[in-house]
Nucleic acid binder design. Structure first.
Length: 418
RNA sequence: GGAGGCGUGGCCGAGUGGUUUAAGGCGCUCGCCUGGAAAGCGGGUUGGGGGAAACCCCUCGGAGGUUCGAAUCCUCUCGCCUCCGCCA
């Protein structure tokens, strides 16, 4: 969330930003409610001051009791109104998105800019390509039928080379980002409702893409960003050095897409992900964002996966993101004739998330300030696997593993022979 | 899952209904003292909100409640500890 005062003092800016993001927020109503809230707050405080003074005074107890009861009922009435107005204002407040970096193009998803390419060129095949499902089932790396039987559509088993490939990818990614100063962290896969909201995810409700546990105040996490940032909720952190985490967790998403979009492991309900999170001073955030993007590019260059980098348009940014880059890998069998598919996403959330989660640090003057938070995907396991098996397939159905993964795979898995 | 104990400012720790506007100590910090320092003495030292200011409101793990008045009493909840059960 943005600072309340800042919103009220920069209404034009906020309104323009909301429009650029293609959102609609009842900003006028928010302003009205905030005015009413402030007026009521002052009244409540005045009554409280009077009641406090009375309680401390030396007046006879009978007198205190009579006057006090009166004040109390007045306070109760005003307080009830205040709470209502507050709740209404807060509801709108939560929907006001972060500001947007001037570098982010206006408009919707189709306006995102293709700003860079990876080092690996798109390969031209002189034989008909097979999709990852066919290839992986042939090599007994993947069992979709068993996943569906045991947990439903959208779940899967990685077997043999598939299981080892997940471990190799995550370990390779962790090793790479550890060199850049990221501390490996294995986080809980479940999180309380309150932190879910703080991180900007809605635990329940229609558009929710997350799983909520019945009878528990818990949710399956959609990304370890939630648990990594949540780790420091309500804390004053030391940011003389930025906090850099390489999180490893399972991620769960209940997205209810159907049909061919859900075939295979491109879109699933559970996957393993190595995620980067940075908590730093706001003035350092942009530099860290560029580092996150660089690390992502290094990982996929090393894995020899062709990709493009997108500067995400304002209309496609999450509410917390000030700026976002996606990497999209080339997947030769996607949508029949090959297509780009998102494999990473890195967002600069500036102080938006920290304000909700109350993560602060002391600046040079000793004043408490909100921290900036950033996140970026290192490896979200399923999609890179799609890219690797489809891009590295041979005419006979063999799959050659990227050299970068060789140290993480037994030698007999370096080439999966047909 | 069952039984019990505990949770107070940066830290230690007092406080079971009304000069507690949270005692006292440690730490930190400013000033005095000093050639300089230590000791000593005096002041400051949670955070959030409102107000032009004086000042006011909220904050003793969290949320409610009782009361004219709550750190203190009640309910729920979270966390930590001990014992039992279960378990890898």
């Amino acid at each position: 969330m943005l600072d309340r005062k800042f919103i009220l003092e920069n209404l034009d800016l906020i309104q323009t930003n909301i429009a650029n993001r293609g959102m609609s927020v009842r900003l006028d109503e928010f302003v009205r409610l905030e005015g009413a809230r402030k007026a009521l707050l002052q009244q409540v405080e005045a009554v409280r001051a009077e009641a406090n003074a009375l309680a401390k005074s030396a007046a006879p107890v009978e007198e205190k009791r009579a006057q006090g009861q009166q004040l109390k009922s007045r306070e109760a009435t005003l307080n009830e109104q205040l709470k209502q107005v507050e709740a209404q204002a807060h509801e709108i407040y939560l929907t006001i998105p972060n500001l947007t970096d001037p570098a982010s193009p206006a408009g919707g998803e189709e306006c995102s800019l293709d700003i860079a390419r990876g080092k690996t060129p798109i390969r031209q095949f002189d034989f008909p390509v097979q999709d990852h499902i066919t290839l992986m089932e042939k090599h007994r790396m993947l069992n979709l039928a068993a996943g569906a039987k045991v947990a439903g559509s959208g779940f899967y088993y990685f077997t043999g080379a598939g299981a080892l490939l997940e471990l190799a990818l995550t370990r390779f990614a962790l090793d790479h980002i550890m060199k850049a100063g990221y501390t490996p962290v294995i986080t809980p896969d479940l999180v309380r409702d309150s932190l879910m909201v703080g991180a900007g995810f809605v635990p329940r409700g229609n558009e929710s893409n997350t799983y909520h546990l019945e009878d528990h105040d818990l949710n399956l996490i959609a990304t370890s960003e939630i648990t990594l940032v949540g780790m420091h909720a309500d804390e004053v952190v030391d940011l003389s050095q930025p906090i850099k985490y390489a999180g490893l967790s399972h991620c769960f998403r209940s997205e209810r897409a159907h049909g061919s979009a859900t075939r295979g492991i491109y879109r699933v309900h559970q996957f393993t992900k190595a995620e980067m999170v940075v908590i730093c001073k706001p003035e350092e955030a942009e530099a860290h964002h560029l580092e996150l993007r660089r690390l992502e590019q290094e990982i996929y260059d090393a894995l020899e996966i062709p990709y493009r980098v997108l500067e995400i348009a304002a209309g496609d940014l999450g509410a917390a993101a000030y700026r976002k880059f996606d990497l999209e890998a080339w997947m030769p069998a996607r949508n029949g004739t090959g297509d780009w598919g998102e494999i990473t996403s890195t967002s600069n959330c500036t102080e938006f998330q920290a304000r909700r989660l109350n993560i602060r640090y002391r600046d040079e003057a000793g004043k408490l300030q909100y921290a900036a938070t950033l996140n970026g995907t290192a490896v979200s396991v399923c999609r890179p696997i799609v890219a690797i098996v489809e891009n590295n397939q041979q005419a006979d159905g063999s799959i050659i593993m990227p050299k970068a993964l060789q140290p993480y795979l037994p030698e007999q898995y370096w080439v999966l022979k047909a």
